[in-house]
């Protein structure tokens, strides 16, 4: 399985209160691609990510990860291969210590103690948080929490990383570190964010969502210069492009 594409076809999701969060969403990510998922609040970014991991059940359409179609039977396997980074690291770090948190996924995969320890060590080192292993999560700084949250995902050795607002509530230095980290990964990445500057740096390709549909899908640089498109979707060009002469 060297080639693990991620394909979403005609995805419809409605919440119990009747709001249609996704209305016929379709896109395809190729192996190793880094793609930004942008859109105004309520455009359907978070719902898309939740649907990919089988956390909300679509009323129509399919999710296909490297040939495996998401269903009740395959949801466990799909989740093993998808690393999901949540917006609030406090939701992701629920165990007593950093070590326990990073070990949570591998332990659920049924690995041996040595394998788990190895996974935890590697994952923490990858995000530069090896020294935090024995700390309780509630005593970490915002940036440390984010790093450790990423490690909890990496320790599961996923094929695909999907991230919800990874740069939210990070200070500039923490954000810079995060961008460096995201660039260094070779996984297939889907980053849902309002931080268009981050997308510009990390993701060569961008998908713009609006009203639960794909409004645009293409090269990041081109999309971010299309002011009418961005304005129509409730977005603004990234700061570093705003100063550029037309």
């Amino acid at each position: 399985m060297s080639h693990h594409f991620l394909e979403v076809r005609d995805l419809w999701v409605a919440y119990p209160d009747g709001t249609e969060a996704l209305r016929g969403l379709s896109f395809r990510l190729e192996h190793g691609e880094a793609v930004g998922l942008v859109g105004a609040n309520g455009a359907g970014k978070s719902t898309t990510l939740l649907a990919l991991a089988g956390l909300v059940i679509p009323c129509r359409g399919s999710v296909n990860l490297g040939g495996t179609v998401l269903s009740k039977q395959t949801v466990g396997e799909i989740r093993r291969r998808i690393g999901f980074l949540f917006q609030d690291p406090d939701d992701q770090l629920f165990m007593p210590t950093v070590f326990d948190d990073v070990a949570f996924g591998p332990l659920n995969q049924g690995l041996t103690a040595e394998e788990v320890e190895e996974r935890v060590r590697t994952a923490l080192e990858q995000v530069g948080a090896g020294h935090l292993a024995e700390r309780p999560a509630h005593r970490l700084s915002g940036g440390e929490k984010r790093s450790v949250a990423i490690a909890t995902v990496l320790s599961m050795m996923p094929d695909v990383l999907i991230m919800d607002e990874p740069s939210a509530s990070l200070d500039p230095r923490g954000r810079r570190l995060l961008i460096g980290l995201l660039k260094s990964f070779t996984h297939t990445r889907l980053v849902a964010t309002h931080d268009l500057d981050l997308v510009l740096e990390v993701c060569p390709r961008t998908i713009v969502l609006s009203g639960g549909r794909v409004e645009a899908d293409g090269e990041t640089a081109r999309i971010f210069q299309d002011r009418t498109l961005l304005e129509r979707c409730g977005l603004e060009p990234p700061l570093c492009l705003q100063g550029m002469p037309r």
Binding site: L50, A53, R79, D91, M95, L107, N108, V153
Partner: peptide, 23 residues
């Protein structure tokens, strides 16, 4: 809401009803 989000983040990491500790 927080509990729901935590539960989701547990699910995507293979939570099956048992919280395992390795210490």
């Amino acid at each position: 809401d927080r509990a729901t989000r935590i539960y989701r983040s547990m699910l995507v990491r293979g939570f099956d009803g048992e919280v395992r500790l390795m210490k």
